[in-house]
């Protein structure tokens, strides 16, 4: 009797192919899509990436952070600093955002890892607030009122001229296309990296630490190291997303860039409604979120009130989210990470 360990299912093979096809379509989409569709997709892709990253640290790692806005904000501000203070091109300056977020995540993890569970959540929030208040003191970048990217910098971003020529677009629309492609690359890269991580030894260690810290340690998992690696990696990626979002808007202020509602509450709702602890969850969640926002954004605070209540109802009656409901109903796993034993050949062989 031979057997092997596999994570693949037929649905996952199909899903992989469909995902490849979708990415292909996504790449060539700017050739015929309208500017507003590109902007919507940019929003969807960036929120999706943020939700996947939060899902990674909270859903898989058990570290419920309410301070992700710190990394979005610091990433965006580092990008602005690169452009305004040192004359960098905005696209390479996005990398500065990732570096700055990792540098912030080191002291943040140092403090927050001293706190357990629920207190970890508020601890990360406090540190995000401290970062916001400190950045608001940075007068050369506009202090509390914020600033804009200078016109000279946004006028000749690498690649924009080429895109404008190829698709026959105006500069502003071409900038949106560039931002969209970068968002697509970040989203695909993030999800690919998370999927690879979860299927690796480190991913197994991460799940073990989340499920039972002591038991994981007893079988030789270095819990601290795993948590540090995942927290820093997620922070760096979140910083890149933050920098990209503010490259697209080209206008920043501490209150917007460090907004707990935009960069953490929405992100948590997307992951919760879609399904925590699954790669498919935030994908479904972001589509629901975008649909609700498109339909009800005119209702302002009523819409947010409903979103909060929806998250509560989901946690109460479908704690594994909409995707959890679907997956249980049809035993569906598009991006499986469970290892299964499959037997080949006769039983007595």
């Amino acid at each position: 009797m031979t057997y092997r360990v596999t994570t693949r299912t037929r649905a996952s093979t199909l899903a992989g192919l469909a995902a490849l096809a979708l990415v292909g379509i996504g790449l060539i989409l700017p050739a015929f899509a309208s500017r507003s569709l590109i902007q919507d997709l940019f929003f969807i892709l960036t929120m999706l990436t943020l939700a996947q990253l939060w899902n990674l640290i909270a859903g898989y790692g058990g570290m419920v952070s309410v301070g992700q806005q710190a990394f979005v904000g610091i990433g965006a501000y580092a990008m602005f600093a690169g452009v305004i203070l040192w004359g960098w091109d905005p696209v390479p300056a996005i990398l500065l955002g990732g570096v700055a977020a990792v540098l912030l995540a080191i002291p943040m993890a140092f403090f927050a890892f001293r706190l357990q569970g629920a207190y970890f959540a508020i601890g990360t929030w406090v540190i995000a607030e401290v970062t916001r208040l400190l950045v608001a003191q940075w007068k050369t970048l506009g202090g509390g009122t914020g600033t804009s990217l200078p016109r000279e910098a946004t006028a000749d971003i690498i690649g924009v001229a080429t895109i404008a020529e190829t698709f026959g677009l105006r500069d502003a629309a071409a900038r949106d296309v560039l931002a969209y492609w970068l968002a697509l690359a970040l989203a695909v890269g993030t999800m690919g990296a998370i999927y690879a991580l979860l299927r690796s030894r480190t991913g197994l260690a991460l799940a073990a630490v989340r499920d039972n810290d002591n038991a994981a340690r007893s079988v030789g998992v270095d819990a601290r190291r795993v948590k540090w690696v995942v927290f820093l990696a997620a922070a760096g990626m979140t910083g890149l997303v933050g920098a990209l979002i503010y490259m697209q808007t080209a206008r920043i202020s501490p209150d917007a860039a460090f907004s707990v509602t935009n960069w953490t509450a929405y992100v948590i709702f997307i992951a919760v409604i879609g399904g925590i602890g699954r790669l498919e969850g935030p994908i479904l969640g972001v589509l629901v979120f975008w649909g609700l926002q498109t339909a009800f954004a005119d209702y302002g605070s009523w819409y947010l009130l409903a979103l909060g209540l929806l998250a509560i109802v989901t946690m109460l009656f479908a704690p594994r989210g909409l995707w959890g409901l679907l997956a249980d109903r049809w035993n569906l796993q598009l991006f499986p990470i469970q290892r299964r034993l499959t037997f080949e050949g006769a039983k007595d062989g």
Binding site: A58, G62, V64, A118, L304, L307, G308, I312, M315, P319
Partner: peptide, 15 residues
Amino acid sequence: ILPPLLITFGLSVAL
């Protein structure tokens, strides 16, 4: 600890 935390967070935004 995740469910109570997320429920009270949802309540915070709703309130």
